[in-house]
């Protein structure tokens, strides 16, 4: 089957790119390995900093694809190659696709928190990740401990799998700080009697309205912030957890019992990103994410003409930035197909 453009990965980036391309009148196929589109965003309840429901963003993007995108779910890429400007993709099911251009939007995975052994994720009952908390929110369930009680105190742990040489990830995942602040507010909203403590190294409130959300968390919701990185966690007989950190602002070791601990897990390149990049011979940075042709001038293109990168394949990115990047990529693809590739 011949198409002008194939977009690989139907997360928010791939959906946005495919929708934009289709609106530009380009014949586009969207390949997704899972059974549904929506990627990580479909597992999220509300988005920072405005706390708009994630569903609104997906619905809007879904509509932009409704008129012309050929969406193929359950179609992981088995192989991909290119020859004389034509890309050939063999999905695990369905016929091979030939395309003039490919947009790689295979994104990221969340860091596997089990790798921070001393935090006890997967071992202690009341250690969950930020993604699991988001699932509880989006299913409209009440947040309870593993043993079914209402938590009285919750610890939110920043930088799990990010900025940590010990797990090989030196980079900052960018979105976790503000996610932690948002989730702290949401916990307080749901459980007014529950204290929330955030354990952080630095709070990186880099984007518009992030700092204001942090201010709101402190002023309106009484969330406490302790500047110290979690060194270890252990379980009490009643399944509550003992956290150990340095309270760096007093300069003393601190021990605190919490009923639950939320780990703000960072970004890692998705295995699909790594696998497809290897098949195409694309290069990646020391952080494992893919490198565009130039970080400033050609940040959506690669060394292979017609092959474009969009969104979190290039490193941690928030939804707003991923969507903007996807739209920029769509414009670049159109230029490429018109033979007017931006120099």
């Amino acid at each position: 089957m011949n198409r002008q453009v194939a977009v690989i990965g139907a997360g928010i980036t791939g959906m946005t790119a495919a929708g934009a391309l289709s609106e530009l009148g380009i014949d586009v196929i969207l390949l997704e390995k899972e059974e549904h589109t929506g990627g990580h965003v479909k597992n999220w309840d509300r988005l920072f900093p405005s706390r708009r429901p994630a569903k609104e963003v997906l619905d809007f993007t879904g509509k932009s694809m409704a008129t012309g995108v050929d969406i193929r779910c359950g179609s992981a890429v088995e192989s991909i190659g290119h020859n004389k400007g034509i890309f050939t993709i063999r999905p695990v099911k369905g016929e091979p696709v030939n395309a003039m251009s490919v947009v790689l939007a295979t994104g990221y995975d969340l860091f596997d928190a089990r790798k921070k052994e001393e935090y006890g994720y997967g071992i202690y009952d009341n250690v969950i990740t930020s993604a699991e908390l988001e699932t509880i929110f989006s299913e409209g369930k009440k947040l309870t401990t593993h043993q079914g009680t209402t938590p009285q105190r919750i610890g939110i742990i920043h930088c799990v799998g990010s900025r940590d040489e010990k797990v090989g990830n030196l980079y900052c995942s960018k979105v976790c700080c503000v996610t932690g602040v948002k989730q702290a507010i949401e916990i307080r909203e749901m459980l007014p009697g529950c204290e929330v403590f955030s354990f952080y190294m630095d709070l990186r409130m880099y984007d518009r309205n992030f700092e204001e959300l942090y201010f709101e968390a402190q002023q309106k919701w009484g969330v406490s912030f302790i500047r110290g990185r979690l060194s270890e966690c252990a379980e009490n007989p009643d399944h509550s957890l003992v956290l150990k950190t340095e309270d760096t602002l007093t300069g003393r070791p601190l021990k605190m019992t919490v009923d639950m601990m939320i780990l703000l897990v960072g970004f890692v390149p998705s295995p699909e990103t790594v696998r497809i990049a290897r098949m195409l011979g694309l290069s990646s940075g020391p952080d494992g994410f893919l490198l565009p042709a130039d970080e400033h001038f050609h940040d959506n293109t690669t060394t292979i003409p017609g092959l474009f990168l969009a969104g979190a394949v290039k490193g941690p990115a928030c939804i707003v930035n991923s969507m903007a990047d996807a739209r920029a990529t769509a414009m670049q693809v159109k230029s490429y197909l018109n033979g007017e590739m931006l120099k």
Binding site: R114, Y121, G122, I123, Y124, D125, H239
Partner: peptide, 10 residues
Amino acid sequence: MKIEGKRSIW
């Protein structure tokens, strides 16, 4: 406590 978690680390 989930013993499977420990087993996977072991």
